Simulated scan of single mutants.
Amino acid sequence: MLDRGVMLPGPFQVARALAATRVLEAPDLDDALEILHRDPVANAFVATRVEAVGLDPWRLGGEMWGWHDADGRLDALCYAGANLVPVNAGPEAVRAFAERARRQGRRCSSIVGPAEATATLWALLERSWGPARDVRAHQPLMATATPVTEVEPDPLVRRVGRAEIEALMPACVAMFTEEVGISPLAGDGGLLYQARVAELVSTGRSFARFDQDGKVVFKAEIGAVTAGACQVQGVWVAPEHRGKRLSETGMAAVVNTALAEVAPVVSLYVNDFNVRARAAYRRVGFREVGAFMSVLF
């Protein structure tokens, strides 16, 4: 339902909002990166894409919208691809991005980003885009820059090899289905999802512990990497092994490797209702540094 605290813009405000936004192009790259680097932890997901391929929509997998302040300076971004992600977006920028998104129509599978901006964005879009399949209004954003000392890292957690992708896939599918509520194999039969899993493995960003039968006991991936921070995703423990603190020892291994070899800060975000996971991450050294919100379609 539309938040009564969010006013729908009138015709003048709509025209002004649209005039202040545009699709960014190659000459805007430096300015866009400056905005992304203002908060390396919160912006890791978008920054890793832009740093890798620039602003070309075909390579980026979506458009990058920019919002300009009254002086004409680029001051906020919104990635519009498979996800709609506001970046450094204050109230005016959010309203502008919402109007552009409303006119374009929903093309994304989720809206995700800093909680305040995402909540306002969804409040403005819900009437035309709703209903959502699920709304996760508060997802603590956690980070650490300190190697783990309070938990013994699992020595059996290691990078997954390319020859192990087939053995890894069932765990990835199970994790995604538990977390998102739908199977990643729907639609295209899982081709895009399998390609993403293979990409993470091939770049050394997939970690797992296998048992003697070659089945995954614990897994996690580093989904985003920038010079300032990386973001862990897809943390999963096989159901029959839960309750053994494998998420703690496994994450300790991943965090220590990431800090030593990948980025100076390791982050993740977690559902607020997942009390056990939040406690495990705190024991590994993560601390809350903000909050995300996700709207799933």
Rank of each mutant, 00 (worst) to 15 (best):
A80C: 08
A80S: 06
G81Y: 04
G81D: 12
G81T: 07
N83R: 08
N83K: 07
N83G: 05
L84Y: 14
V85C: 12
V85L: 13
V85N: 12
P86I: 02
P86Q: 11
A89G: 11
V94H: 01
V94C: 00
R95L: 00
A96V: 04
R100T: 08
A101P: 03
R102Q: 09
R103H: 09
Q104T: 08
G105Y: 01
S109Q: 14
S110N: 15
S110K: 14
I111H: 01
V112G: 09
A115E: 15
A115L: 10
E116N: 07
E116M: 09
A117W: 01
A119G: 08
W122H: 05
A123M: 01
E126S: 10
S128D: 15
W129A: 01
G130N: 03
G130W: 04
A132S: 13
R133H: 13
D134Q: 15
D134T: 12
R136V: 06
P140L: 02
A143Q: 14
A145L: 06
A145H: 09
T146R: 15
T146L: 10
T149W: 14
E150K: 10
E150W: 07
V151R: 05
V151C: 07
P153N: 00
P155A: 03
L156N: 08
L156D: 14
V157K: 01
V157W: 13
V157F: 01
R158N: 02
R159S: 06
R159T: 08
V160F: 02
V160S: 06
